[in-house]
Design a protein around this nucleic acid. Structure first.
Lengths: 240, 240
DNA sequence: TAGGTATTCAATCAAATGATGGAGTAAAAA
DNA sequence: TTTTTACTCCATCATTTGATTGAATACCTA
């Protein structure tokens, strides 16, 4: 008993799969309203009625795209998790950033779609969503920010979302940022990884050093801790 | 000799200004193609022909919105720069984050529009753009990441863009993130500020400590520096 | 091979959308 | 007062867009 989506994934040459692949890319580039069924059909080289025959109406196709991206993203996160399992937090971040960025730059429509869904509304009602809470919870647990992936604190969630947003932003914004920086693609990707590591690693390594007092000897600038704690009242305690 | 935009700003009660304000919000929420001239006109309570009379076609109105947002953003950045001028880097970041987030959460359509422009294409050709390079250059100079605001290194630009992206993401993504976290608006804003400080401050404070060797005694985890330098070949040297 | 099933497309629809023309109105200028 | 200017809306167009129908074709099965 296969869902239409699984069927399409099974055989990438099938019409269903070809339509889905093009829809994924175009919805990512132009957003839901910016993409017309005719654009998709034309790019695949078919009539719009064939598109509707396979995927129903535009909403249905879009929802299939969202689920498809969710599958891919979940699978890749599992992969990364397997690779970095057991390493130190710093090493985990290092490797995760490298691997996730390689993956996302190979499939930029994933970042496009995820961010568009965060930031923009649709006039039509869409019934399916990206599994941000589930994924974020898993990552939070994997990073030692939460004990239970099902029930991470808001603070832990936001930290994870910062990481994911930072990654997606540079992938999805490539068309805007790269010409601005005058870098070729290879060097852009390199610079993005470097920048993400520069920004993300110190924060989490310092936090870890702080919570495991004595275990990791690295000293911390006291002011940072003060600033971080100052406004911490309303959200639950991280990593108690 | 006033531009139509200046005229509209002058008197916020004028029809021109009312249309612009609604257009700003709706373009931000639904994107260019997701917003129809009829939606805007209806919200203002006028006929679409009145809208076209004042602003020309849809493209013209959208470009006016982009320029308007550019003005506001530039003005606010100048304000922040004035307030934090002279403080330490850590204090500058602290205060800038607080003030910018208060401002952006008061005008979320700014973040919406900026991010949509980064991440999404438009089928129509739009002739005006957000002044990301100019603004980023100024911020880079203000943060001591570049000596010349006109000519910052790619690495410095990317660091600044990380900061701005992080801010915009949480403002623009409020509708998506806040229900997920189950926080009221006030606590969401507080948690966002806290998270941004947690992520951003350590990286830049450590970098400053590193470049001014001896001036700031804080020691650094050696691995971070290695990872940061490793891929630095193609981009210019920061802060030489 | 005959009959059925799955797939594709040309033709066509209805609604949505961007845009305009011209009549009407109120306020300012002469 | 008369004239001009600025503004607003109703009616209307042409195009785009999402979607369907029915005929044609290819493929499969008994």
């Amino acid at each position: 008993m296969k869902s239409p989506l699984e069927k399409a994934r099974k055989n990438p040459e099938s019409m269903k799969a070809r339509i889905l692949a093009v829809a994924r890319r175009l919805f990512g580039e132009y957003g839901f309203h910016g993409t017309t069924t005719r654009m998709i059909a034309k790019e695949v080289g078919i009539d719009i009625s064939t598109l509707h025959y396979h995927w129903g109406d535009k909403n249905d196709l879009y929802e299939a795209v969202v689920m498809d991206v969710n599958n891919d993203l979940g699978r890749e996160l599992l992969k990364v998790e397997k690779v970095v399992h057991g390493s130190s937090l710093e090493e985990r971040l290092n490797v995760s950033i490298d691997q996730m960025m390689d993956y996302l730059f190979d499939h930029p429509e994933i970042s496009n779609l995820v961010l568009l869904r965060y930031f923009s509304k649709t006039r039509n009602e869409i019934d399916v969503d990206f599994k941000v809470p589930e994924f974020s919870g898993d990552i939070a647990r994997a990073m030692g920010l939460a004990k239970d992936a099902k029930n991470p604190s808001p603070r832990a969630m936001m930290k994870v979302m910062s990481i994911m947003n930072g990654m997606h932003s540079f992938v999805s914004g490539e068309n805007f940022f790269r010409p601005m920086l005058n870098l070729d693609r290879k060097n852009y990707i390199r610079a993005v990884k470097e920048t993400l590591k520069f920004i993300l690693i110190p924060a989490f390594v310092l936090q870890e050093a702080k919570t495991k007092k004595g275990a990791v000897p690295g000293p911390l600038p006291p002011k940072i801790n003060k600033a971080t704690k100052q406004n911490a009242r309303p959200v639950k305690q991280d990593n108690p």
